[in-house]
């Protein structure tokens, strides 16, 4: 049941990434590219969570990788939001 949360999170993130990427290809607006990359990263982060909790054993932890992925994703979006003249 709990894994449904991460799967849903990954799917919604991917959907956002696709919509934003589509917009970027049409408008070449930087913000849409950066935010698309952010949501791709969030999708990856959700998948890493699934792998960490359900696929690999407790001897190996992806905690640091997961945090790094999330940080990189949000950093990309934050950069895009700040870089655009607004």
């Amino acid at each position: 049941m709990v894994e449904a949360v991460y799967i849903l999170g990954a799917l919604i993130s991917l959907a956002c990434a696709v919509l934003l990427l589509r917009s970027y290809l049409r408008t070449r607006t930087g913000l849409t590219l950066w935010s698309s990359l952010c949501f791709i990263g969030l999708a990856v982060n959700n998948i890493e969570l699934l792998i960490d909790l359900y696929i690999i054993g407790p001897e190996v932890s992806l905690a640091l990788l997961r945090s790094a992925t999330a940080l990189a994703s949000f950093a990309l979006l934050a950069f895009g939001l700040l870089w655009e003249r607004a």
Binding site: C16, L19, L20, R22, S23, Y24, T27, T29, G30, L31, T32, S35, E84, R85, A86
Partner: peptide
């Protein structure tokens, strides 16, 4: 509102 923000919002029109 700046173009970038509008493009972001409009991106979610499916």
């Amino acid at each position: 509102p700046p173009e970038a923000i509008r493009d972001f919002a409009n991106a979610f029109h499916i």
